Simulated scan of single mutants.
Amino acid sequence: MALLAACSPSVVTGTATPSPPSASTAAGVGGLPPDPEPGATEDCPYLGSEFVAESNGQHVSKVRVSADQPHPACFFYRPDGKVQLTVRVYVGDAKTATALVNKAAPVDSSNPASDPSGWKGGYLSTDDGAVYAVAKGSAAVIATTNQKQSVKARTVVKKTISALKL
């Protein structure tokens, strides 16, 4: 009887279902893309330095971008050489997009975010600054700032979404 059950289509279907990692297991087994690293010193293709300086309240002395394509992460530096703001864009799998947002702004410790309309995620302030992270379908946008006001990160996320037409 056990042999017959093992050959039944319901068991085959049942074993195939877990193959794509869920948002929770993707984060747990390291299925997420690695955190972006600053690379080349060049302008951010979707955010201007003046906009970031105005939004974050600090002069931007340098911008570096990651090697991620087609949407590199952008790292904005302040005059003392430290990163003041980072924006990460992910477009791919919906479960991965949600998992990246949950990693940046964990559901159990962040405030719910739903701006712009149709996007969902979270925001929180820490001793080091603030994060605003949202996903919609297969896209995620995450901004971290050295400022404690999450509204600054939210402003940057909304501009990024608008500029990339996500």
Rank of each mutant, 00 (worst) to 15 (best):
S110K: 10
S49I: 08
G39S: 13
Q84H: 03
L32F: 04
K62T: 11
S8T: 14
G48L: 07
D93H: 14
S61G: 10
I142K: 06
H59D: 15
A26T: 01
T13F: 07
D108C: 08
Y123N: 05
V89R: 11
V63G: 13
P34Q: 00
V131F: 03
V151Q: 12
N111P: 01
Q69T: 15
P9S: 11
A143I: 03
T15M: 09
R78Q: 07
A105C: 11
C7Q: 10
T145C: 07
L124P: 02
A16I: 10
A143T: 10
A23M: 10
T17G: 06
S22A: 08
Q147A: 09
D43V: 12
C7A: 15
V87P: 11
G28A: 04
S138T: 08
L32M: 00
D93S: 09
N56M: 15
A2H: 04
V156L: 01
V131S: 00
P33L: 05
S117T: 03
F76V: 04
A104M: 09
T155F: 00
K152L: 12
P116N: 06
Y123F: 05
E50N: 09
V87T: 12
L47V: 09
C44P: 14
A6Y: 13
D43E: 15
D108V: 14
V156Y: 00
A67W: 07
N111A: 15
A73S: 13
A153L: 06
S125R: 03
A163Q: 06
D68Q: 13
V151A: 14
K159Y: 01
P72W: 01
Q58A: 14
Y77S: 02
A53M: 10
S117L: 09
D35R: 06
A40H: 03
A26Q: 03
D43N: 12
V11N: 04
T25I: 01
K165Y: 02
P112H: 13
Y46C: 04
L4Y: 02
T96P: 05
S19Q: 08
A163S: 04
P106N: 04
A94V: 06
D128K: 01
K120A: 15
G122P: 04
L3H: 01
P116C: 09
T96C: 12
E54L: 06
D80A: 03
S10A: 11
Q84I: 00
R78W: 05
C44K: 07
L166W: 10
H59V: 15
T41P: 09
